[in-house]
Structure formats: structure tokens, C-alpha cells
Design a protein around this nucleic acid. Structure first.
Lengths: 165, 165
DNA sequence: TTTAACGTTCAAATATTTCTGAAAGTTTAA
DNA sequence: TTAAACTTTCAGAAATATTTGAACGTTAAA
């Protein structure tokens, strides 16, 4: 397969994957483009290569920087800002799981813990409700803990874990 | 907190969680309602309790059955169909990870493997591209394997794993 | 200062997803 | 058969999410 075709396919696949996981397509595609780029890219270059508007590129670059997976750079003698994505897959995975944990798992754990002090007349319903939510709480907390561990670990830990499985 | 308020909060939180993870809100809310229900519910009852149209409820019930997390039941002497969600959190997690693996991880692995036979004039770019995509491929395959293991495992395995971490 | 070269913002346009409700289909009992 | 009680489908409506582009900031060199 020709390089340019492969690059396109990769960018589109990354966009689709992102969309499946609740990340907008443009954001995922910009990330993919920066991942395969051999040099830092300017907003201008991203606009051109992905056929997106300036505003869209700007917004999504900021979102990517919020996620901590894209960095801004300056070249000497250039006014323009350039952007890069870390190429280390391991670091990327850790960063993404760290952020999703913070943004999505922590809030549901918070809600589940608040639901524990429920009361009411229908004893059976209340008991079942408590059982369900406390089990969900337990499970979520365990997953949360695993992800925390993972997002602070080094690659060796992960490989050791893989062996054990 | 009063039972009905808690139930509402749970349903809304579940809906939001779903939406964050690319599952539509109605589907997640129906699932939440069935999770807390003490009895199987008919489409009618779901429509009423969640204030949704017949069509919406029907569509999303089918999607939930596709995911294998909601089942249809029949009561003796009743024409109507009733629906239930399995209350076992462990089973639920396994089923969801099994489906997401099949629907979302497998396809990206497929694409990544196809990208391996890339060629082109810009040797540096091609080499970097291969490195990136093969590392992503490796990582995805490992995660895929872990999820497969998980989705076939029993709870004991998970607890043992937790201990090791 | 002024001005050119950028970056940022946001209201409006567009695209996408979800939802509704009525019509069509199906099943069962009489 | 017929008819009542349900389920399914789907075109259009509504809601939501994304994208655009032009106006507005900001910076730095002249």
C-alpha cells in the first residue's frame, strides 16, 4: 500500500475509533495526523491537510492539549505555533486512561456513593436498590483503582501483568 | 434520600454515563430502569416511567437485547412482552466488554494490521509510520487479549488479579 | 505608533443523531 | 374468519453536536 493511502486510512480509522468512544472525529483525526507527522505542524498545515476550518482546528487542538496528548512548540525565528503528538503509545494509553478516569469514572462513583443512604416504604425495592448500587460501586471502585495503578505504572509492570494473565 | 429520588438520580446518571461512552441516553436509561425494577416491565410501563415514545422504547429495547444485556420474558396468561436486565454486575461488565471488543477493538486491529505493508519514497516517513502502527498494533492486540480473557473469566480470577496489582 | 501575521472566539449554518407517532404488521382468542 | 391487543417500522420532526468564517484580540517587528 502506498504511503499516502496508508496515512489516509490511518487518519480515517482513528477518526472512526474516536467517534465510537465519544471523542469527536475532527479531534481524533488531528491527533492521528500529528501522530504520523515527521515534523511539528502548524494550524495552517493541519487545516490544509484535513480540509478543516481554522476555528475547528484551533478548538480541537486546544481540546487535545487539555487531554495532555498534544503539545505546542515554537520554532526559532518563526511567529507561528507548531504542534506535536507524543509518539510513545504507552504514554498515550496512560494519559488517555488517566483523563477518562477523572472525567467519567470518578463522577459515577461519586453518584453511586451518594445513593447508598436511600430510604423508603417499599422495603424490598429499597433493599434490592441498595444491593445493586453497592455492587456497582464496588466494581467501579475496583476498576478505578486498576486504572489508577495502570496510569502511574511503567511498561514493565504491564508486561508482568500480561504474563500473569 | 427518598427511594424515588434515588431511582431517578440513578437513571439519569446511568444515561449520562452511557452518553459519555457513545451509548445513547435513552438506551442507557431504559437499561437503568430495568436494572432497578423489581419486576419485569412491559414496553408500556417503560414508556410511561421514562416519558418516551413507543417507537423509541421498542428500538432501544432491541438494541439492548442485541448487546445481550436485556432479555424478553413472557408471563403466563399475558399477551404482552416483558423485559428484564440481569442484575449481576459482574456478568454485565463481561458482556459489555465482550461486545465492545467485537465491535470496536477488532476492527481497529484489522486496519492496523493491513497498514503494515506500506511502501513509499520517503524512507524516513515510511519507517516512522511502520514503527507507530506496529506499536499500536501490538498494544491493541495485548489489550484485546486481556479483554477476551476477562470476558471469559469468573469473578475469582478478577479478584486474584486485583490482589496481584 | 502602525501594521502584518498570526491566534481566538462565537453566532449562525450545517450535519448528525435521536425521537415521535401514526400506519402497517403480527399474533391470539373467540 | 374477525377483531382486539399488542409489536414493529420508518418518514419526518426535533434535538444535539459539529463546523464554519468573519470579527475581534494579541504580538512583535518596523
Amino acid at each position: 500500500m502506498e504511503y499516502n493511502e496508508a496515512k489516509d486510512r490511518f487518519i480515517r480509522a482513528w477518526g472512526t475509533l474516536g467517534a465510537n468512544w465519544g471523542i469527536n472525529k475532527a479531534m481524533a483525526q488531528i491527533h492521528a495526523l500529528l501522530l504520523v507527522a515527521t515534523e511539528p505542524l502548524s494550524a495552517e498545515e493541519i487545516m490544509e491537510q484535513l480540509q478543516m476550518s481554522r476555528g475547528n482546528v484551533n478548538m480541537n487542538l486546544r481540546a487535545l492539549m487539555d487531554w495532555g496528548i498534544v503539545k505546542k512548540e515554537h520554532k526559532v525565528g518563526e511567529r507561528k505555533e507548531f504542534f506535536t503528538a507524543g509518539k510513545d503509545v504507552w504514554e498515550l494509553a496512560k494519559q488517555v486512561s488517566r483523563e477518562r478516569r477523572r472525567r467519567e469514572i470518578e463522577p459515577i462513583i461519586q453518584v453511586l456513593s451518594e445513593l447508598q443512604n436511600v430510604s423508603g416504604n417499599d422495603k424490598k425495592a429499597v433493599a434490592e436498590f441498595k444491593k445493586l448500587t453497592s455492587e456497582l460501586y464496588e466494581f467501579s471502585s475496583q476498576v478505578d483503582g486498576m486504572i489508577e495503578k495502570f496510569s502511574k505504572s511503567d511498561q514493565t509492570w504491564f508486561y508482568k501483568l500480561l504474563m500473569k494473565i
